[in-house]
Every structure is written in structure tokens, then in C-alpha cells.
Simulated scan of single mutants.
Amino acid sequence: MQSKQEQITELLELNEELENYFYNTIIPQLFVDSALLLRKYTPPAMKQFNLSEAHIGKPIADVTENLRYPTIIENIKTVIKTGEILAKEIQTTDMCWYQMNIIPYIIKSKNTTNGVIITFVDITPRILDLKDQEKLIIEHELLLDTIAHDIKNPITAFGLSIKLFKKLSAVQKDMLKTLVGNLELSLLTMQKVVDELTETRFQNHKYQAPAELLSIENLIEDVRLTLASQIFERNAVLKLDLKHTQISFNRRKFRSVLYNLINNAIKYTPEDRNPEITITSRAKKGTFVLEVSDNGIGINKSDYKSIFEKFGRIKDEVEGMGIGLYLVKSIITSVGGKISVKSKIGEGSSFKITLIDDTAE
């Protein structure tokens, strides 16, 4: 049996170890008890959330103004009640982004939750990288498509000119023989370049990123983080109904598809209503079906075709270049898939993507 003094000494040593951990950790952490009072915090939390010793013992609500996350109190209560970990991404007032984990503090001897430990992991670089990556993807896709397709028109005109040259009289042909030969060689060279670019763009080129088994939930989460500012500012809600959650596809391209559809849904929702975006997925007879629906301004039936054309836009005052849906269709049709739209003016739109998928039953 330990003496009382030995027990006190052991507790002091344990407390000293705990204090050393608090002092040296680089992760902001808050310790909140079941009465929602702030009991302890790590030094990084003091710096990030402007905390001081005066906050100890006071309601956590007194420091929530440092977060752009109004439901934190409700989330803490939910974790205390359920005993389950909750993870969310939040933005602080200095525009930094954090992965916030609310972890129940469980007293094992009593099997009760006596509060929570809240940790914050800085994910700002990840979100910035995702945004930059999405811009590069759009620029890359547009450049390749422009080179591989738009240049076909002048090549066609080039070929017609050569045919006309060949129909000239014998005397004229002798004079232009060398010129026509050079033109024809140039045409063949240009056509070869276009064919190679087209193959790179749409088929299994050796430098193309391979398809892989993707988690739809994880890709949606990546896109949600990329569009976090827009989602927050518009108070947008993403609803998921995923009956089939995996598909074999190029990660970068499928993320671009989701990004453009969700981004458009937010942009084309009137300012007087909060965007509500529903994403559903299902398997149907060897195909994967994904639908992204919104409560936006809607699209006229007469515009169904034009919205998928390059620079096709239905609302000029909305920011953008009009290439998002064009790229989405290019990506989907390049692998033999289909995309369609149904819409009602003033009520919203629904984009349906159908892809062949061996994993779908």
C-alpha cells in the first residue's frame, strides 16, 4: 500500500509530465468540461485563439468569437451526450483552416463522459494547394482541347487550298509544284501533331495518369474543402445519398467533374436563397450513375445543348469563363460516358452522369 505522501508525490509527477506535454505540443488543444467550462489549453491555442489565464474556468462560449464556426457549442454537447468523436473543418477569424476534432473525455471507472478535448490541425496549405490545383487542371484541360480541336479548322482550310492548287492548269502546276509540296508536308506534320495530342487528351497515353479505385465520399470532401470559402459565405448545404461509393477513374479528372458541378450549383443559386446541393450515386446494371442537383436559377430547355459548349454561358453576370460544363462533358464522354441535364426555371437543375463500371452490380 502506498502512503498518502507517496500517492501525492506520484500525482504531482504525473501532473508535471502532463504540464510538460501541454507546454511542448505544437497542436492547439482546448479542454472543456461537461459544464462547457474551459479548463485548460495548450500554448498554441493561447496564441491562435487569443486566450489568457483569465479564460480558465469560464464558459467556452466566451472564446467562440475567435472561430468562424457558430455551432461548436452544439457539437460539444453532442459529443458529450453520445461519446462519439466528431471531426470537422473550420475557419478561424484570420482566415486559416483547421481540422477540428472533438474527442470525448471518458472516465473509464464510471463509464461517463466528463467533457471533451478539442484539437486543431492546420490544413490551410492543403486547401490552398487544392485551389491552385483546380485552376491548373482547368487551364491544362482547356489548352489541350484548344490545341487538339480548334486547330483542326485551319488545317481543314489548309487541305482545301492544296486541293485547289492541284486543280490548276499544267503550266501553273509546274510553277507551284514546289510550293504545293511544302504545303502538303506542313499539313501532314500538323495533322500528326494534332492526332498525337488528341490521343494524349482522350485515350490511354503512356503519360496519362492511370485510373484507380476512388472513394466518392473522399473526393467530395476534397472538393468541399476547395470550395470552403464559397460554401461558408453562401451558407451552402451539401446533402449526400451515396448508394454506390466507389468507381475506377482518373482521380484528378473525376475531382474536376465534381468541382465544376458543385461550384456551378453554388454560383447559379440566387442570392436570396441558400444553395442546397444534393449528390446521389447508385449502381445500375454495370453502370455507375451520379447526380448533382441544386435549387438554383434553372436552365431553359433551349439552352441544354449550349451550356456544354465551350464558353457557353446562361448568365453573363456570374463570374466564370463558361468552360466548366464543357470540360465536364469532355472528361465524361472521353471514356464513353454520358451526361444529361434536367431543369426547371426558378427551381433548380439536376446533372446526371452515367459511366460504365465493372464494380457496379
Rank of each mutant, 00 (worst) to 15 (best):
A209W: 03
L187Y: 08
I307E: 06
S340K: 10
S248T: 13
D358N: 12
I117S: 05
L86K: 13
V193R: 07
I106R: 15
F249I: 07
E10Q: 14
S281Y: 06
A148R: 05
K285E: 14
I56D: 08
L130V: 00
N24P: 08
A209M: 09
I60D: 03
G346P: 08
V116L: 05
F249A: 11
A360N: 05
N295S: 02
G83H: 02
I339D: 01
A228V: 03
L30C: 00
I102L: 00
S306V: 14
I297C: 07
E74A: 10
K131G: 00
G348S: 04
L261N: 11
P270V: 09
F165T: 07
K192M: 07
K284T: 13
N114W: 07
L86H: 13
L11N: 07
H55G: 00
E276R: 10
D241G: 10
K81L: 11
P70I: 06
K110Y: 07
M46P: 03
F31E: 11
Q246R: 11
K239H: 11
G298L: 02
K152A: 12
N263F: 11
V335H: 07
Q7Y: 12
E134N: 10
K58P: 01
Q48D: 03
N66C: 10
I162Y: 02
S256P: 04
D129E: 12
I247G: 07
T280S: 12
D174T: 12
I72Q: 01
K206P: 15
D222A: 05
L142G: 02
F202G: 05
P125T: 09
S302F: 09
Y98H: 03
V328I: 09
I155T: 09
I8T: 14
F120I: 00
I345T: 14
Q91N: 04
N50V: 08
I118Q: 00
R313H: 03
L67S: 00
K77R: 13
K344A: 04
I80A: 02
M1G: 14
T226N: 02
K81I: 00
I220P: 06
V341I: 14
I155M: 15
K342T: 14
E319S: 14
E233Y: 09
K131Y: 05
L213A: 09
D294P: 04
A209I: 07
K152P: 00
E84F: 07
D357N: 14
D272N: 15
V341D: 02
D145Q: 05
Q48P: 01
S350V: 14
V341F: 02
V193Y: 10
R252I: 12
S34N: 15
L238T: 02
V194M: 11
L327A: 10
N182M: 10
I8M: 13
A360E: 04
T146F: 08
L261Y: 10
K40H: 08
V121S: 09
N300S: 13
T359I: 12
N114L: 11
K177P: 02
N66K: 15
Y304K: 09
